[in-house]
Structures are given as C-alpha cells and as structure tokens.
Design a protein around this nucleic acid. Structure first.
Lengths: 336, 336
DNA sequence: CTGAAAGCGCTTACAG
DNA sequence: CTGAAAGCGCTTACAG
C-alpha cells in the first residue's frame, strides 16, 4: 500500500479511501483512476492480518466437531454440512476452519480459538445434551451456534426435528402392523440427537398404546460396528421384535449384519428403518428405508445464523428445526 | 498485555519476554512469577491477529478442494484426509481452513487466500493433470502440496500409487482368468488419479498380452450415478466384458445398478472391482472387492510436507506414494 | 480535496 | 536486568 501511494504520489490515507470505496471522500476521478491503475500494476492485495488487527475481527468461523478421530472420519454428513456453511459464509468473505475437539478434550481447545481471537464465532457440531463449557462460552458473549440441539433453547441452535423424524419412522412401522418395535440409538443418550430420537420413539409407542419396554432399546455409538452387539441382544430376547428403528444408517449397517448372521431376512423376518439417508442406503440389499436428513440445509442455516450473530443482528428464532421426511425403500414390510 | 504489565509494574517488553520464554532475557524469578501470576489472573491470551501481523504468518493452512458442490459433498474421504492433516498440524499450532474452489472457478479464489495472506500454505486436493494456476503459484514461491498427483514431480505431492493400485486390481482379474476386462474411470482423464489408474489398467493388460480396446473404457464423474450410463454402454457391446475395473467404489455403485437392471449377476456373470474401499463396500451385496486407499495417512503426509515447506526445511522427497492393497471380497470370481 | 498522526496488540533490536 | 522506541500493514478521526 505504501508502494502504490508513493507511485501515485499521494498519501496512504488517500489510497485507503479509494481502494475501500469510502463514501464522502471526495477524491477526484483522475486521482482515483491513477490509484486503481497503480494498485493493479503492483498487484496490490490488502494484508488480511493487518486488516483483522485494526478491525478487531478474523473473518473466520470454526466448525468444531466433538468426536473421536475415528467417528470424525466416519461422519458421512460433515462434508455436506461444511458445503452448506461455506455456501453462505464465503460470499460474505468469511472462511471456514475445521477443528476436531475430541469428546474427552480437557484442554478446551476451541475456547482457545476464541480467546486468542483466531475465529469470530463457533459452530458446534454434535453437542452433548448438557455442555457446561459451551454454555459458559455463550454466557461470555461468544457467537455460537449449535448444530445438533442442546437442551433448552437459550443458545442458538439448528437441527433437524429429531423427535418428529423418529416419530414418523416408528409411525411407519406401526402402520405396517408392528407392535413389538425395538430401538437402537445412533449414540449414547447424552447426545442430544440420540436423546430426541428416543423421545420420538417413545411418543409414537405411547400414542399407539404400547408400553415402553427398556429391554427393547440398545445403544449404538456412531460407527457401523456399534450396531452389531445391541442388535444381537435384541435377537436373543425370548420374544424378539418384529421391527427395529435404528437411530443412524451407519449404525444400521452393523444391525443388518447381526440379522444376517442370525440367518434372518429383512424385511420378511424383521423390518429395519434407519435415520440419515446416507448415500449408499439405496444400494444396500434390501435398499434401506430411512429418514432423510437435509445436511446441506443444516449447514446453510447454521452459517446464516452465526453470520447474523457476529454482525450483531437479531435472530428470527433461537432454534431452527428442519423437517425430515421418510424415504420408504424395501427394508420395511408389513408384520406377518 | 498492557494490563498485565501495569498490574505488575513492568514494561510490556518484559511481559513479552517472560510469557514467550525468551532465552537470555535474564529476568529474575520473582518478576517472572509475578508476571505469570498476573497473566493468569487477568486471563490473558495473546491476540493471534497481532502476532500474525508482526510475525508475517497466519498459522493457517488451506485445504482447497477442486470440485463442484455436489462432488464435494459426496467425497467419502475428505473427512479422513482432513483428520490426518489436523493430526499433524494442530500440535504445531496450525489450523485447517477448508475452501471449495469449484472446478470452473474463474476467480482463482485460492490464489486470493495467499495474496491476502489469509493462509501460509495450500493443500490442493484432486488437481487436474495440467494446472497452470497451481504451477504458477508454486513458481512464485507459495508453499503448496498436491494431494493427488499432478504430472511431473516438480511440485511437492502426495498420493496413493494409483498406477500400482490399478495394476493390482486388474492383475487380480487376470489371475481369475478374465481376458475381456472393461474399465470405468472415477473421473475424466484430465484428473491425475483417473489418468494414472487408466495407465495401471493398460499396463496390466499389456503385460498379459491383451490388446487395449478403447471401446471397453468408460468415463465416470465422481458420483454414484455417473457409473450407470458407461456401464450400460459396456453391457450393450456385442461382446461384453466378463469383468470390469471401476476407478472408484462410489462410481461402482452406479455400475452395480446397471448390471442389476440388466438382470445380470455379480460375480457369476460379471466381476466388479472398485477402488477406494469406502466404508459401506463390505455391506453391499455382494461385498465389493476393491483397492484400499489410506486416506488418513494421505492427509498426515500432506500435513507433514506442507509444514516442512512453510518452515523452510527441505523435503525428503518431492513425491510421496503411499501403497494401496487389495481387499478381496465377493464381487470378483473366476471367469466361467 | 488530502495528509499527518494515532492506534490496533504484539515483537524485538537497541540502549542504558 | 529492564524499558523506550520502532515497526508489522492497515484504518480513521481530525485538521487544514
């Protein structure tokens, strides 16, 4: 910038004014043109770090993913969420940082991101139901949006309507005549999504007048293998369920394996419905019935919200719930 | 920092010295302790933007992904690569920015990242075989590592050994007795990986004394649907192949669909081998034989290389090729 | 219309 | 042993 000022023979102030198009700066068109010309010739680009320092912002938003390395790598939707976030923030000249804060992260590495002013805001993926650290950060005024709901709605959050999605899944099973319906969660119930999907399951059963039975519920843990053991447990029950609602398609993979290993057929012997609608669901045999999760939209909404918060605008709603819809394929059938 | 200096009654210089543990600064332990104490009490954290400005670096590395939004979202390995990169850069206090530079991106948005000093280096994913822009950036001294090889090895790059992987896949088919072997690429041949996998295919055929036949080769385009049409074309041939090597498991999904729609059986009527070893491969029916791609390792190596380049160290090798290995499942069988 | 000056929050020779 | 001062590359009142 000093270079272009010298080249044109004006002060850096003037250069700053024309390059930033400051209104009311009353710079004659000739000077203006000469400056623009010189900037082009010198291939001038403003130094973002200097700008950030003076403006007191970073133009960065962190997507913090609270999972173990393995879970992180296996997350089929992360790229979709990222894509959605980028679609909305990049036009506003914000960039996306990805940060893996592993669940047992005692050092609160994402708090450092804020303290050291490396980012302007936090998008937190898959928060636990109760998360003191996040709550604290929010109380301190940190721009935060939760992707995946926490309990309570005092922190801005966006998620699919997990209760409703699970409800619809179980409803589908009920309509097919199933009465004995198992559930295997996508993750421990300390995770908000798992918690809510369980509630949807319970709600549908309750409305159908079916008593909730603890022994019909198993706990998955994000990855494909984690569905195997809990499904085996269900199959070992004296009266095994005729259908099972699995809280994640990925976990359903292990569930299907367990069923196959027991030489049972889907859907003839047991109906299976998943959640998420991963890409390959339709290529499974049989193609998996599931609940579609609009991941790109989730990212887009989260991006819009964090942008508003950072820019000091007020949010239309603290809590955004995106609709899911049932994708009926061939892993579910009428109870026989 | 000013606050802690005032609180202790020393200059900011002194504070800076002790907080940064500058050697030979000869600060008495008492002062040192008082400063550390004050910093803790005031919850002091250095402002990264100011640091960056004075140090002339950003502590950010961009992963630029050159794909369309849809391809980006469907990339099963991106999270694994990211995980690997983060594993190695975060201990060095670098962070990962993700940037989607869509293939038709005329504005060279990733060049801006460097010009404006938003990042210290670029990790470029899936580069085209010839990429003038990347070449230019490298010539200008920008730290760059290609993940997915470009032609020539003058730009640091890390990739799996695509030629070897494809060769092994086709070799497997040849050993099963197949002579008429088709190939459907993972992407247009302007992409380095596709180009190399084609070469491995050709090489294996050549060594087996089988003439290369253009009509047996189709072009995929990253996503699952893209395998369908080219496979249909192969099946419509007067003499259809008895086996097909597909350059990507995701593309193989469409290929399998085409085969199913023609009422042919895998592997009895036609053997299929993929590439990548996506999570769900083993859950397909039949489980997909494929070539395993060590994605986390890829990210780890790329991270190590870019770190060295940024820190001015010399690279052990300009070009790193990670081994793949065959994962034999049940989609391939002896030619009948 | 345009520039000198202060300031953003740090580091780092240099001087004492 | 410690501090005053310059500097990183910008912006922005303020003065003329």
């Amino acid at each position: 910038m000093k270079d272009v000022a010298e080249r044109v023979g004006v002060s850096r102030t003037t250069v700053s004014f024309v390059l930033n198009n400051i209104p009311n700066s009353n710079i004659p068109d000739v000077t203006r043109q000469r400056i623009i010309q010189a900037a082009r010739e010198l291939d001038y680009a403003p130094n973002a770090q200097a700008l950030n320092l003076v403006k007191g912002r970073t133009m960065m938003i962190a997507l913090v993913v609270r999972k173990t390395a393995h879970q992180f790598a296996a997350d089929a939707f992360l790229t979709e969420v990222m894509e959605g976030v980028m679609q909305v923030i990049e036009p506003h000249h914000f960039h996306l940082m990805v940060h893996a804060a592993h669940a047992n992260d005692a050092n609160n590495t994402y708090r450092e991101l804020i303290r050291m002013r490396k980012v302007d805001g936090l998008l937190i993926s898959s928060p636990l139901v109760h998360d003191a650290e996040v709550r604290q950060l929010h109380a301190e005024g940190t721009p935060i949006v939760l992707q995946g709901a926490a309990d309570g709605n005092d922190i801005p959050n966006v998620d699919v309507d997990n209760v409703q999605g699970a409800y619809a899944a179980v409803q589908h099973l009920l309509e097919l005549g199933h009465r004995r319906i198992g559930h295997i969660s996508n993750a421990p119930f300390s995770y908000a999504a798992s918690h809510d999907r369980l509630r949807g399951y319970q709600q549908a059963l309750a409305e159908a007048g079916i008593a909730y039975d603890d022994s019909l519920v198993g706990v998955g843990n994000f990855n494909d293998d984690s569905g195997y053991a809990p499904m085996m447990a269900l199959l070992d029950l004296p009266a095994r369920p005729s259908a099972v609602f699995v809280g994640s398609d990925t976990v359903a993979l292990g569930v299907l394996n367990a069923i196959r290993d027991r030489r049972l057929r889907v859907p003839q012997d047991i109906s299976v419905i998943g959640f998420d609608d991963i890409l390959v669901g339709k290529y499974l045999e049989p193609p998996l019935t599931t609940v579609h999760l609009p991941a790109v939209d989730l990212g887009r909404h989260a991006g819009e919200m964090i942008l508003k918060i950072i820019q000091g605008e007020t949010l239309d709603a603290m809590s955004v719930r995106l609709p899911t819809h049932l994708v009926i394929r061939r892993s579910t059938a009428a109870e026989s």
